[in-house]
Design a protein around this nucleic acid. Structure first.
Lengths: 169, 169
DNA sequence: GCAATATACTAGGACATCCAATGGTCGGTG
DNA sequence: CACCGACCATTGGATGTCCTAGTATATTGC
């Protein structure tokens, strides 16, 4: 972004909460606000890396999901469920990926309601190359302390399970 | 959302990364993906609480920021900087808050380029009431373990400082 | 003092997300 | 076997975010 701020705005917000008699919820407010901001920073980094490939994060996620699917294809609804976004967002992403020649729609062999999304060979190639770029330019230097990453995975995993995202251990 | 998934899709993604020779970055990938998903869950909860007030999170943030400002007013640019969003997003939010009678634009007394955004009394009232609702319905039961909240604040604070968000301790 | 540069805000466009509504297709139940 | 509720996908609308100009006002520098 721009120049670093002289002070942490989230720490300021926390102080404001405490000063207004909401001290009991000041810490969770700060934690939640920090997650919002962190997501924003990470998303921006990811989009910068994906831009040269003509991809956005939403489209990349779908491409990557398909590349790990058994035969490179999934029903729209299944993609929606696994990526945890509305089906309409999948429709939107598939439209654009299809225009770019990276995926293809095909009818489900036995269920007339279902549409399968399938990687083209260009799509598979781009999925691999963009993943390599993300690994090299974002994930390998995430900016989190080494020990902090495991902490994050555990804390956020607990949160997500608690929020009803998934069930297993 | 819908029904909980039988398995954690992020844990699956992590396994996929490991199985494809990207084991060194599998953990940070999982942590980053978890942050994305956690943000999505939290944002949805917040929006549900704010909806009865006719607010979105973007508009609430601006309203809350103004309510803590000295005289309830700030230059657009200052709000943009503190909230870390594009100036055009502030323009957009102010347009809608102004239509709702919650804020008012006024010229800066000495700088003709600058527009001040100022809370109306309705805006100040709504800021207070919506904050009370968020405190009661989201922050007081954030879903994070008690000890985890401080961990999160530290880890994400380190990350944000490292990312150039702010400079102080 | 005036021209060149920088800053503040707005306008319009591209994307993404969600919601509500619509149109087909499946399936279980009489 | 026909019907009605459940399910899948698309379309259209509202919001929000960022980016790229374009306009107006300040500042800088010669």
């Amino acid at each position: 972004m721009g120049t670093p701020l002289p002070r942490d705005p989230i720490a300021d917000a926390r102080r404001n909460w405490e000063d207004h008699g909401w001290a009991e919820v000041a810490a969770p407010m700060a934690a939640i606000t920090a997650i919002m901001r962190t997501q924003q920073i990470l998303l921006a980094r990811i989009e910068v890396v994906l831009k040269p490939f003509g991809l956005t994060f939403a489209r990349y996620e779908l491409l990557a999901l398909l590349s790990f699917a058994r035969n490179g294809s999934l029903p729209m609804k299944k993609a929606s469920t696994l990526l945890q976004v509305h089906l309409t967002s999948i429709t939107n992403a598939v439209d654009r990926l299809q225009d770019a020649g990276l995926v293809r729609r095909s009818p489900h062999p036995t269920d007339g309601r279902t549409t399968l999304v399938e990687l083209t060979s260009e799509g598979r190639t781009l999925a691999k190359r963009s993943t390599t770029a993300l690994n090299a330019e974002v994930f390998s230097a995430s900016g989190f302390g080494p020990g902090d990453i495991d902490q994050l995975i555990r804390i956020l995993g607990d949160f997500r399970r608690n929020a009803g995202d998934f069930m297993d251990s």
